[in-house]
Amino acid sequence: MTTLAVTINGEARRVPGPATLLELLGHLGLDPRSVVVELNREIVRRPRLAETRVAEGDSIELVHFVGGG
């Protein structure tokens, strides 16, 4: 197993690879039903998380709902 250098929520990280986005969420301890994923500025819909691979240099945003007005 190698690692991939990616940016997640603006932070440089090394994550296990090769991996899909679904596996990445698992690695981060996140429930895919409660986050929305943007990969290099494009939204990746939930059904496609399992088939979308993480690549070296990817920029990933993981967002959810927080309190707001």
Binding site: N9, L28, S34, H64, V66, G67, G68, G69
Partner: peptide, 19 residues
Amino acid sequence: VTVAVRRVDLDRTKEAGVL
């Protein structure tokens, strides 16, 4: 009820998600 969209806290120090 209104909610805001923000980055997930990857350190998970608290249950920040409103849901």
